[in-house]
């Protein structure tokens, strides 16, 4: 719509409309590294909060037929330090701590005595690649029941913290830990977990990114308070804590 107006009037209107854009200048804060570092940390925290809200505790990740699983040789070994931290498999026990009725040491046999779940699911790396693998293990939720963890409907503990033989560490929100496909995994492709893939026990949660799937588990702790600055090896360097899928 063409209008005809005095030059002065057009300038006045233009100026007024221009000023209305002023709030956008606030985005300029992102141009200053000191400010932007804080802002994007907040952005990631907000994303993690939203991700937690989006998470549906009973919604299953896609599962695949055996023919869709990649050959074992094409399932990458990922590790942060050494592929084989030299776990003493003979003497290995899982240490259980925190808000549980039966803390102490648990053997692999005790974990294997729980109902065994075998699932072909997609393992997605934060880098962008993914592989469909075959995993076997016990539901985390079953094991948490066994140890008498405070995971009831009321006032349940909020987090599962794990530390690993190779000093890797992770923490998982309880809703994801209790998901029916979240496993303490001791088998891949029908074989006992090999050393490179985290023998004797690792996390395997198709609702989480790869860096959440800690290997060579050593200790688990049920808690309401995350250890500050120790929420996860990569998370402490900047990865999203929730890391959900």
């Amino acid at each position: 719509m063409i209008t005809r107006l005095e030059d002065k009037e057009l300038k006045r209107k233009s100026r007024r409309e221009l000023l209305k854009l002023a709030p956008i200048v606030a985005l300029g804060a992102f141009a200053f590294p000191k400010v932007s570092n804080r802002l994007i940390e907040e952005g990631v925290r907000f994303s993690d909060w939203a991700a937690g809200e989006m998470f549906r505790s009973q919604h299953l990740a896609q599962t695949f037929s055996n023919s869709e699983v990649v050959p074992f040789a094409k399932f990458p070994y990922n590790f942060y330090d050494v592929v084989d931290p030299g776990v003493n498999l003979e003497k290995w026990t899982l240490t259980v701590e925190g808000d549980v009725r039966h803390p102490g040491e648990y053997t692999l046999t005790q974990i294997q005595a729980l109902p065994k779940i075998v699932q072909n699911t997609r393992h997605i790396c934060v880098e962008g690649w993914d592989v469909i693998g075959s995993f076997g293990g016990a539901r985390i939720s079953d094991f948490l029941k066994l140890i008498g963890a405070n995971v009831g409907p009321n006032n349940r503990a909020r987090f599962l913290e794990v530390t690993c033989v190779d000093d890797y560490y992770e923490s998982i929100d309880m809703a994801s830990a209790l998901h029916p496909q979240s496993l303490f995994c001791y088998e891949m492709y029908g074989q006992p977990l090999d050393r490179g893939h985290g023998a004797p026990l690792r996390l395997q949660m198709p609702t989480k990114l790869g860096y959440k799937q800690a290997k060579y588990l050593d200790t688990i702790r049920i808690t309401n308070v995350l250890t500050s600055g120790k929420t996860g090896y990569w998370e402490d360097q900047g990865y999203s804590w929730f890391g959900g899928l």
Binding site: M1, I2, T3, L10, K20, L21, F30
Partner: peptide
């Protein structure tokens, strides 16, 4: 008098620049 047109409402201008950034 000057010929002029109000082409871009405020909402469009704001979203254009937020989107550009």
């Amino acid at each position: 008098l000057v010929r002029a047109a109000y082409e871009h409402p405020l909402a469009i201008r704001i979203t254009h620049w937020v989107n550009a950034i």
